[in-house]
Design a protein around this nucleic acid. Structure first.
Lengths: 221, 221
DNA sequence: GTGATTTTGTTCTCCTGTTCACAAACTCCT
DNA sequence: AGGAGTTTGTGAACAGGAGAACAAAATCAC
C-alpha cells in the first residue's frame, strides 16, 4: 500500500499560492456551471487569468489531482481545493458595523456560497437594533461575547468607521475571535496569535491612478 | 546648480512599493491629524504596520525627503507621496452597478478625500434611474459614452453582478476608459492597454478560513 | 502492442522583493 | 568647535515566487 496523497505531514503551501486558490475555485465553479466536466491547465489558467505553468505548480502543492494527457476533472478538483481551503466546512461569521458597507457584506451571496454563514450583525448605534438585514436581526455590540461563545465564531468582520475599529478588534479578540477581516481604513494592532487581513477599498483605485498618471506623463507626445 | 530631486528620468518604482504608498499616505494623514509634525521611519512604519527598513527603502525610490538624525516632516512627506501617486489631482470616476456595494462605494468618503470624484452612477435597471445616491443621480448605462467624453473619465468602477461585468467592461473600454476597478467576482478580459484591478470581497475571508483550518488541524493536542 | 500525441508534475534558472547592517549626515550638548 | 547620539539612505546578502523547459505518464490510432 503506497502512501497515496494522504496528508499527514504539514505540506507547506506558499502564501502566494493560497491567495490564488480562491480564484481557481471560482473559475472551476464557473466551468462546472457551464457543463464542463474536464479541463486542461491551459483552460483553467485562462478562466482564472493566470499563467498555466503557475497554475500547475500551485496545484502540485495540493497533490496530484490531474491526469497526464487528459487534464483535470472539474468537480473533483473543485472539491479537493475546497476541502484544502476549508470551504467544505461551515464558518460562522460576525459582522460589526452595519453601515453601507456592512449592508453590502451581509447581503453578499459570495460569502454564503463559500461556506461562510453570517450568524450575527452588530452595531453600536441603538437606532439600528432590531432592523433586519439579509434575514438577520441587527443586535447590540455588547452581545458579541455571548454570540461568539454560542456559535463558536472564529472569524469576525469589521465594517465600522476607522475610529471604532481598534476597539472592536480588541473586544473581538477578547471574546475569542482569532481571525479578523478589516474593512476599516486603519491598521489594527492585535496579539501574535490573531490573524488580521485588510481590504482597502480605495487602495486599488489609488494604484490605478498612479499608473494612469505615469502613462500621461510618460508619453507627452 | 545640481539636479536636485527633480524627476525627469522615469524612476522605476517597484510594484510592491506602489501598493504600499497608499498605506503610508493614510498613516501620514492620521499622524498629521493627531498634530504630529515630524516622525521617524520607526514611527511611521509602526503606524503603517510595516518594517521600518522596508519603509525607508520604499521612500528612497521617491527621493530623499527625510533628514538624517531627525526624521520626516509629516506634511511635506505626505504631499510628496500624494503628488507621486497622483492624489493631488482630481480623478473623475464612474461607478456602474448601484446595488448594495455600489451604494457603499458611492458613499465611501475615502474616495473623495483621495482625489476621486464620482461624476456618475449608472445602472442597467430602469427602476433605479433618477434615484439620488450620495448626491449623484443614477442614470442609464447607455449614457456612459457621453459622460466619459464630457468629464474626461479615465477610471471606471464595476460593482455589477458577475454576469454583467464583462459586457460593462467592454463598453467602458469602448467609451475610452483605460483603468477599471472590478468588484464583480469574475475575470475580465480586456486589451493590453487597459489596466484592470480586482477586489474580491470573499477572497480574503477564504484565506483566513484556510489558516484557521490549518491551526485547528495542526494542533490537535 | 507500438508509436504518436497530449498534458501533467517538477526541476532549474531568473528576477523581484525583503531584511540586515552600516556609512553618511544631521542635531544637541558642552 | 568638537564629540556623542540619532536617524536616514543604501549596498549587499538572502528568501521567495515566476516562468521556461522538459521528463513522466496517460490516451488514441492502427
Amino acid at each position: 500500500m503506497t502512501a497515496r496523497t494522504s496528508n499527514d505531514t504539514a505540506r507547506e503551501i506558499p502564501e502566494a499560492t493560497v491567495a490564488r486558490l480562491p480564484v481557481y475555485l471560482r473559475a472551476l465553479s464557473t466551468l462546472s456551471e457551464a457543463g464542463t466536466t474536464v479541463c486542461s491547465s491551459e483552460d483553467l489558467a485562462a478562466a482564472a487569468g493566470v499563467n498555466s505553468a503557475k497554475l500547475r505548480k500551485d496545484l502540485s502543492y495540493l497533490g496530484s489531482y490531474g491526469t497526464r494527457g487528459v487534464g483535470y476533472d472539474v468537480d473533483y478538483l473543485r472539491y479537493q481545493i475546497a476541502r484544502e481551503m476549508g470551504a467544505t466546512r461551515d464558518w460562522p461569521v460576525v459582522i460589526v458595523g452595519i453601515g453601507n458597507l456592512g449592508h453590502a457584506l451581509a447581503n453578499y451571496s459570495g460569502f454564503r456560497s463559500r461556506g461562510f454563514r453570517v450568524v450575527a450583525l452588530l452595531d453600536a448605534d441603538g437606532q439600528r437594533h432590531g432592523e433586519v438585514v439579509a434575514g438577520v436581526v441587527v443586535r447590540a455590540f455588547d452581545d458579541l461575547r455571548s454570540i461568539v461563545r454560542e456559535h463558536g465564531v472564529a472569524i469576525g468582520v469589521i465594517a465600522t468607521p476607522a475610529a471604532a475599529a481598534q476597539d472592536v478588534a480588541d473586544q473581538m479578540v477578547d471574546a475569542g475571535i482569532t481571525s479578523i477581516l478589516n474593512f476599516a481604513p486603519t491598521v489594527l494592532s492585535v496579539g501574535p496569535h490573531v490573524a488580521v487581513s485588510k481590504v482597502d477599498l480605495s487602495k486599488e483605485l489609488q494604484v490605478l491612478a498612479y499608473h494612469e498618471q505615469r502613462k500621461a506623463t510618460q508619453e507627452p507626445a
